[in-house]
Design a binder for these strands. Structure first.
Lengths: 231, 231
DNA sequence: TCGCAGCGTTAGATTGATCTAACAAAAGCC
DNA sequence: GGCTTTTGTTAGATCAATCTAACGCTGCGA
């Protein structure tokens, strides 16, 4: 149906719009960096995808998904996250090993397979990194969340996801003793260098803003990310 | 490491030598038919694989595997058969649906994944079609077997494998009520057109030689394929 | 033993995905 | 508003895998 490469472009656009940035269009350079290819390559590919009716685009403009492109991209993300869940839950891989393998598995083409895998895993809603798994019809439950970096002092949060899937980040996360669903409290933010002092599992730790901005949290009491009236 | 395509060539050579024909070399045309490409394409690829030290070959000669090529090809077959087992045993696919999906899964590159999958499945020795699954070190248990087509009258056989993975064959096999491990007896072979009359599960059926030559059997009593002294 | 059918090769073209280098447009800044 | 930086495009090349068409070997059978 669609090539390995085309699928990767659509998946990346989904990731950069629907998921990461909360906007609905993305520039050619941003895409090139994300896909680790040169901008010239993206320009070519983007013309091809437009010709196929999968994206909206015009010379020197930004790229956004058409309805069809969005569905295909979401389907790849769905497969990726289901396979990650399989690798983690069934094959007992550490969560810092699963991303690269899922990059390959996500391109296996068989909706029957995807749906049976989904059932085999018990229709999970979130993958091991806490990210929402799109459903077969392309719908997603986007949890209302904020970055730990944006936490306000004294409020109690619950970690629900991480946004960096690199081995380095995930290993550091593990080594600190953190886990998805842990409760964490931000004590003080250092205005000079942005370091955060946090409290979790009775331990007090100092973390960098770079680390904190890859951790998603919700209010531990009401589950909402917005400043709430819980405390 | 090796491209999708290179892996497919090596896998096919393994299949046509180690498994199907019991010889150790294969011609360019035979390979071209098997891979569904033109002979000219095979000639090119074969030069490339020779340059990489994966096969033995010279102009106008036949192709055979080097030790390294054999290992890589067997690794692909191993992955294919493990995935088929997964699809059948865990995801409950019918055995006529699994081949095409496994064709895609077999190219996922991660020995860690392959070995964990192997363990998850309980280290199976045979896939759902009854074919031996090569082990991680490249060793294989080749069962001593013969084709149902070559069965002698009155002896009792046990079906251990099939050699045609096409949907048409497998569906017919199912519809007749046959199963791997069923016991079957050849009653009469019609000398004129080769039709076979067989008996299994108390049913008597007439089958074509084309059908019978895709079914592997062993002696039901001693497990050996050779004419034995059991009866 | 010789000719021809079948097997295998070569040359040249195509397609998809990528690159580099040079250029063009848009955005940002004073 | 004009200069500079950032962003994006174009042209032309490369590489892998494939094709077609034409040609070169080889071995079997008469």
């Amino acid at each position: 149906m669609f090539s390995f490469t085309e699928e990767n472009y659509l998946k990346s656009i989904v990731q950069l719009t629907v998921f990461e940035e909360g906007v609905d269009e993305v520039g050619v350079n941003r895409l090139a960096v994300y896909l680790d290819v040169k901008p010239a390559t993206v320009t070519d590919m983007v013309k091809k995808l437009k010709a196929k009716g999968l994206i909206n685009y015009q010379r020197y403009g930004k790229v956004s998904l058409t309805e069809e492109g969005r569905l295909i991209g979401l389907r790849v993300v769905r497969k990726h996250r289901l396979w990650e869940t399989f690798l983690h839950d069934k094959l007992k891989f550490n969560w810092d090993q699963i991303h690269e393998i899922a990059e390959q598995l996500e391109h296996v083409n068989s909706s029957e397979l995807t749906n049976r895998l989904d059932a085999f895993l018990g229709f999970p809603e979130f993958d091991p990194h806490g990210d929402a798994i799109p459903r077969a019809d392309g719908s997603i439950t986007m949890p209302y969340r904020k970055l730990l970096n944006e936490a306000v002092p004294d409020q109690l949060y619950r970690i629900i996801a991480v946004s960096d899937n690199s081995n380095e980040f995930l290993r550091l996360f593990d080594e600190m003793g953190l886990n998805i669903n842990d409760e964490v409290q931000m004590l003080v933010r250092n205005d000079y260098d942005g370091l955060l002092h946090i409290l979790f599992n009775g331990k007090e730790r100092t973390i960098s803003p770079k680390f904190a901005e890859n951790i998603y949290v919700v209010c531990a009491k009401c589950g909402k990310a917005k400043a709430c009236n819980c405390n």
